[in-house]
């Protein structure tokens, strides 16, 4: 007889890792939202203060973080749609693995498309004209 799994640990394969990634991205985005409401609230303090803080978002390192944030939100959104498809679409559970690959493929293609518009400015700044 197989050993009993400890507690409620989830031992799936793609299903487990897509869940871990969903949780990690959800928590990260939630913390970002906290910071983002605070920075946007500066529009109420003074135009100058707001512009000074937003200027730090235009630097190469923060631009890379921004790309990471987009990656996290996009994964969470697409995987969230996959969760809903499994919950509400009668064929969802049967195709859950294919849905995972669809999510990853779509995520990759959209991120590849976003790379140029989001990172071009930093690329030019770091590697010269």
């Amino acid at each position: 007889m197989a050993k009993a799994p400890a507690g409620t640990l989830y031992r799936g394969r793609q299903g487990m890792w897509s869940w871990v990634a969903h949780r990690v991205t959800g928590v990260l985005v939630f913390f970002f939202l906290f910071a983002h409401v605070l920075d946007t609230a500066l529009v109420r303090v003074s135009p100058d203060t707001y512009d000074k803080v937003i200027a730090t978002y235009k630097t190469p390192i923060v631009n890379l973080l921004e790309f990471g944030l987009i990656a996290a939100v996009l994964y969470h959104a697409l995987n969230g749609l996959r969760i809903m498809a499994i919950d509400f679409w009668e064929k969802g559970p049967r195709y859950q693995r294919q849905l995972t690959y669809a999510v990853l493929t779509l995520w990759f293609l959209l991120m590849a498309g976003a790379a140029q518009p989001v990172l071009a400015h930093t690329f030019r700044q770091v590697f010269g004209s």
Binding site: Y57, N63, H121
Partner: peptide, 20 residues
């Protein structure tokens, strides 16, 4: 959220054009 990201971070220069 995806609409917000598209407008703010991807189209027309992204954050580079954001100010008060």
């Amino acid at each position: 959220v995806l609409g917000h990201l598209l407008i703010m971070n991807v189209l027309d220069g992204g954050v580079q054009r954001v100010n008060w």
